[in-house]
Amino acid sequence: MNYIIRQCNNVRRYKFLLQQLVSRDFKAKYKRSFLGVLWSFLNPLLTMIVQFIVFSTLFKSDIPNFAMYLLIGIVFFNFFSEATSMGLTSIVGNASLITKVYIPKYIFPVSRVLSSSINLLLAMIPLFIVALFTGVRFTFAVLILPFSIACTIVFCIGVSLILSSAMVYFRDMQFLWGVLNMLWMYATPIFYPESILPQNLMILFKMNPMYHFIRLSRALILNGESPEFKAYLFCVIAAVIPFFIGTIIFKKAQNEFALHL
């Protein structure tokens, strides 16, 4: 109990620092690029167009409103891969700070994930524009969308906590993660329908948290209806369990960080 109160005080005390770090990441990202923040809109749109052309002409997908189906998957998965690869280097990249000043170290991975979340929110704008163009009829279900976004963010914080501590000990993580990330993308139904997944391996695909977040978001936007209660439950479980595992690993590892940087 005491521990929780102390952490809450910490969060209040370091809120300003968190704010500063998020704004630094965000400014640094688009510094010296001509289109600047516009890339947050353009990136998912362009990826969507490329994949749309490839998959709708080559593979003859029979998914209704394939453009939207694709775009929702891309926006969420892009966020996941950006947030985790930024989180991965957050401790090693701030080595000069960690060995000179005392700051609670979780601030670094958390701030990286939060600055990617700003990108995620910006990417929602083209998503809604495309939705209007492709004739999606919105219902009140879309108001539940922040829930699936929040779950995804919590999940990404969990993964980043694990990756950033692993990175301190093994610098191989950054290369390994690039490959794993790609594998993860193919294992998530982003550009193919769920129905092509082999039925006997379904349980394996349901272990993938990203599957649940994307599935819920698609149901809310494309079908315009709130899915069964179980879908929410799965999202919460898929977010909270990695978060707790990440917190425990990070807490154990952090005391040794300064010695290995």
Partner: peptide, 26 residues
């Protein structure tokens, strides 16, 4: 702690932005 000055600076930001960033770190 003044162990090493300026360890929290971000070289792409202006002096003004760094005052707030470095101040927040301290």
């Amino acid at each position: 702690p003044m162990l090493e000055l300026g360890s929290g600076f971000d070289h792409d930001l202006t002096g003004r932005e760094n005052i707030f960033l470095n101040g927040a770190i301290l």
